[in-house]
Design a protein around this nucleic acid. Structure first.
Lengths: 207, 207
DNA sequence: TTAATTATTGACCAAACGGTCAGCAAGACG
DNA sequence: CGTCTTGCTGACCGTTTGGTCAATAATTAA
């Protein structure tokens, strides 16, 4: 139902607008809280027509999730094993923060899914995601051994980067409610704060 | 409906078990995703009986939220303005982390609420919460001015502490899926990682 | 033009939902 | 004991939900 290629022009357009509408609705209300009527309305289609393109509510959701996980991990893959350790990791932090700015709906979609126990993507977490994280952790450890990076537990470092960057997308209501200025202004401050924080934490001792 | 005192023994017991059951269900599925039948079943009561104690689904939810926000902010209030800056903040980090261990359901309840736009507690965020944060931020800035704390943007520091500590409750499925060991083991590592991270970031320059 | 395929919809369905209510059971209390 | 309040429930209601289907409209291919 999804791997085939013979997409007509109309199919491509409508599937796209359904997924786009669904991204908005699912990220706002979670899987169970979202309704097909909402998605259909936002996509400008009738409910039966939405179900003509995707067999079920769950089909839309899982297609969204699996299609997005790749994109979501791209910044991590871009870390260059041959680069300067501290700068590579700081670059990752800033790319991840930028993703929270550019794709807040995607971030909240994952947040909803994982907070509620990741019932639909637990396999991908324990599979490809873990492999990539383990590989990256190994690289960080090597950098530490070579004294080019402060000694720090790599897995928890990665968790902290995810947490601090995605926070600005997932909890933007809270951030905005406290800082009382628009989102773009926060992000500039957040970027310099995080660069500051991680530079101090990651720079190896001088000697 | 909630401020009165004349609670009988039975009222106290049943309201308590309803709130406890609701905490589990709401934190697992969010407000819209949770159902009264689930809550009633988990509390060991019939649905009409649940509605006898709380007038509506929303009444249960808001009572939970407002009752919890206080507890949730306690660790922040415990910061001693007369203490040693770095140690005070590190203590806060560890207390907050401990809360994620002890009260993961409460943490996920807030996470769900805020990710979905905080429709029920936006007032408390822009009111009491912001006031407390601003007050604490002012304290941090003073400490920085006195050179007893590294220069760092206080609001974003607080955000990062929330993000990194609550991450272990809100995204525990992901953490467990990647680390493949039980929760208690993670927390010991997380504690030493976070202490390490923030000590380096907060300790003022030597000179 | 025609025939086949693809796209779309109104009407409908069973299940699940939050909530109501009349009536019954159980404690509290004199 | 009897009375009064509190606690509890089965049956029910209107609405919303995800999903179906037969019929129709639009597009494509010959």
């Amino acid at each position: 139902m999804s791997l085939q290629q013979p997409q007509t022009r109309i199919q491509k357009k409508n599937r796209e607008s359904i997924l786009n509408a669904a991204l908005g609705v699912f990220s706002d209300h979670g899987f169970r809280g979202a309704t097909l009527d909402q998605i259909a309305a936002e996509a400008g289609l009738s409910k039966p027509n939405v179900l003509y393109y995707f067999g079920s509510k769950e089909a839309i959701y899982t297609e969204l999730l699996s299609g997005l996980l790749e994109t979501w991990l791209d910044p991590l893959r871009e870390i260059d094993a041959d680069g300067e350790p501290v700068e590579e990791i700081l670059g990752y932090v800033l790319r991840k923060l930028q993703m929270s700015l550019d794709f807040p709906r995607e971030s909240r979609l994952f947040a909803n899914e994982i907070v509620q126990g990741a019932p639909h993507i637990i396999d991908q977490i324990e599979g490809p995601l873990r492999d990539l994280v383990d590989k990256t952790a190994k690289l960080f450890r090597r950098w530490s051994d070579e004294k080019r990076l402060a000694r720090i537990e790599p897995h928890h470092l990665i968790f902290s980067i995810w947490a601090t960057t995605q926070h600005y997308a997932d909890f933007s209501v809270q951030v905005t409610g406290i800082l009382q200025s628009d989102n773009d202004a926060h992000f500039a401050d957040a970027a310099s704060f995080l660069e500051n924080l991680y530079r101090r934490a990651l720079t190896p001792p001088a000697n």
